[in-house]
Computed example of a mutant assay.
Amino acid sequence: MDYQYPISYDWSTNETIEVIAFYTSVEKAYEKGVEREELMTAYKQFKSIVPSIAEEKKLCNELEELSGYSAYRVIQKAKKGAPGDKIKMQSR
């Protein structure tokens, strides 16, 4: 990983850790696969910290620009999945 995660300096340390856990779950989905429940739990925590759709899009777009990993596509696939599924994305 040769990039820094997009974060806000307004977040507490715990909030920053939760957001980074979500970003890590997105990376896992591309690199080796991630359990759907783990991903959705991380996303729920992320949304509790970033409730604004505009802010979510901004952060997720920054993550994609930096890493090439689309949080949007990962979450869409997870939402369509069933409990117990493993989410595995195809790298570009």
Score class of each variant (00 low, 15 high):
Lys58Ala: 09
Ala71Tyr: 00
Val26Asp: 04
Glu35Asn: 06
Ala21Ser: 14
Glu18Met: 08
Ile75Glu: 09
Tyr43Arg: 08
Asn14Ser: 14
Pro83Tyr: 07
Arg36Met: 02
Lys57Trp: 13
Ile75Trp: 01
Tyr5Pro: 09
Gln4Trp: 11
Ser12Asp: 06
Ser52Gly: 04
Gln90Ser: 04
Tyr30Trp: 01
Lys44Ile: 07
Glu64Arg: 09
Tyr43Asn: 09
Asp2Met: 10
Glu55Ile: 12
Met1Asn: 13
Tyr23His: 13
Glu56Tyr: 05
Glu56Trp: 09
Thr16Met: 11
Arg92Ile: 08
Ile7Gly: 06
Trp11Gln: 07
Glu35Cys: 02
Val74Glu: 05
Glu27Lys: 15
Ala54Phe: 11
Ser25Gln: 06
Lys79Met: 02
Thr41Asp: 15
Pro51Met: 10
Glu65His: 05
Ala54Val: 14
Glu56Ala: 10
Lys77Asp: 04
Val50Trp: 06
Ile87Asn: 00
Lys32Tyr: 06
Met1Phe: 10
Gly33Ile: 01
Val26Thr: 05
Ser25Asp: 05
Glu64Leu: 07
Pro51Ile: 09
Lys77His: 10
Ala54His: 13
Val74Gly: 05
Ile75Asp: 05
Tyr9Ala: 09
Ile75Leu: 08
Cys60Glu: 15
Trp11Lys: 07
Gln45Cys: 14
Ile17Gly: 07
Gln4Arg: 14
Glu27Val: 03
Ile53Ala: 12
Thr24Met: 13
Asn14Ala: 11
Gln90Arg: 06
Pro83Asp: 09
Arg92Phe: 06
Ser91Thr: 03
Tyr30Pro: 00
Asp2Leu: 10
Asp10Ile: 01
Ala42His: 14
Arg73Thr: 07
Gln76Ala: 12
Pro51His: 02
Glu18Pro: 05
Pro51Ala: 06
Glu38Val: 12
Met40Ala: 11
Pro51Asp: 07
Gly84Cys: 02
Glu37Gln: 03
Glu35Thr: 01
Ala82Phe: 15
Val34Pro: 00
Cys60Gln: 15
Ser8Ile: 03
Ala29Ser: 15
Cys60Ser: 12
Glu62Val: 03
Ile75Pro: 06
Ala71Asn: 00
Tyr30Met: 01
Met40Gln: 14
Pro83Gly: 04
Glu27Asn: 14
Ile17Gln: 15
Gln4His: 12
Ser91Phe: 03
Ser91Ile: 12
Tyr23Met: 14
Lys79Asn: 05
Lys86Glu: 15
Glu27Asp: 15
Tyr3Gly: 09
Lys88Ala: 00
Lys86Pro: 02
Ala21Trp: 12
Pro83Ser: 07
Phe46Tyr: 15
Ile7Phe: 03
Lys32Asn: 08
Gly84Leu: 03
Thr13Gly: 12
Pro51Thr: 10
Ser25Gly: 10
Asp2Asn: 13
Val74Met: 08
Glu37Gly: 00
